[in-house]
Computed example of a mutant assay.
Amino acid sequence: MRDFLHRLYPYQALKLMFQRVRLIVVKPNTPIGHSPPLCQDSQPFDPDWARSQLVTLFRALKHTCKEHGHTNHGRLGSIRRSILHQQLGFHLEIGPSRIQNAGLGVFLRGHRIIRPGSIVAMYPGTLYRPGEAIFFNSIQNRYILKCNDGVYVDGKAKGLSGSIFRSANGRDNYPGITPTADTTWMMDWNFQHSKKAAVSGQEVPGVTRIGSVLLKNPLAVGQIVNNGTKLFPPNVRYQELDIRARECPLDLQEFLPNIWSSGDWHVHDHDHDSEAMEDVPVDWSEHSRNYLRTVILITTKHIEEDEELYSTYIEENSFM
């Protein structure tokens, strides 16, 4: 019953309504005519800036892969960590969450303070347009996000969800063409963590961590970020971000950790399209068939060294 309620839309809608009511209540001492202060996570967001940040990071990672393609995996991982530091000022590590019985969590390492509004992760997974079948892979699946326009993102790497992502990736990325999606995010993080703990001989929970530099795209760990609690309040939020083919060069699209379950997004908007189409309003009734939907996680407050990331599953913002 608990899992059913977690996925029951009326229940979640009612929960969201009461949450919003609590957020806008004005305190008794608030002067008449004055609005309550905005929440920290209501700061402006620039989608063009976000796309530029991601493309710059992908370009640096691509350059690293070309220069050190034959380097051993450990060496390549340290190089990717260095790239992440240069571009964003931190790297991510996976380890036991500070929330009891929450499994693994994502930690920011190697920085002093990360400011609000910074990109710290991406939410990978298969994308479903409204009306597409998602029932069977939604059973016992807590990794599905629903976007504001009805698009779903399934970030589960195992079972039916994982098979669907690999199948869609094989459809769009057959041998001989430039890859347009990343599948390295689908690794078994629990296995990797156990393996490192066994090698290092550390059995104390919370000590052993593994870096996200094992991934082609080190930011693709949003599905591991835990939901915040009263003791550990949220410090990041989900942000929808759509990317067109011309906004991310073809040779960099191998770092994108999302894929549509049906249809290749390059079919309707390729780099050769006329620039005159820039001024044509987008028909959102087609749910952006010429876009790739991504969901990034951005900070809502200052985050200090070695702090764990916590999100809120009940909130998401849309900026195209």
Rank of each mutant, 00 (worst) to 15 (best):
N169D: 08
L256T: 01
Y143M: 13
V120L: 11
P257V: 02
H111R: 01
T299S: 13
W260I: 02
N190Q: 15
I164Q: 01
P257R: 03
E304V: 09
Q86S: 13
L16D: 04
K156W: 04
V236Y: 00
D172L: 06
F319V: 06
D279P: 00
H63C: 05
G162Q: 01
H111C: 06
S52R: 01
G263V: 05
K230S: 06
Q53C: 11
A13I: 02
S78G: 11
L8T: 02
T184V: 02
K156T: 07
L292A: 11
N141K: 04
M1H: 15
V204Q: 15
G170L: 01
R246E: 14
V280C: 02
E240D: 12
G206Y: 11
S138G: 10
P257I: 03
C147K: 07
L215N: 09
H68D: 08
L16V: 14
N190G: 10
R81E: 06
F191N: 03
T184E: 05
Q140G: 03
G69D: 10
K156Y: 08
R2H: 04
M122C: 10
L214W: 05
E275D: 13
Q223S: 00
T312Y: 01
H68C: 06
L16N: 15
N317C: 09
K216L: 14
L104K: 09
L241F: 14
I259A: 05
L219S: 07
Q100T: 10
N72F: 00
D271T: 01
Q100Y: 08
L127S: 01
G162E: 01
D41V: 14
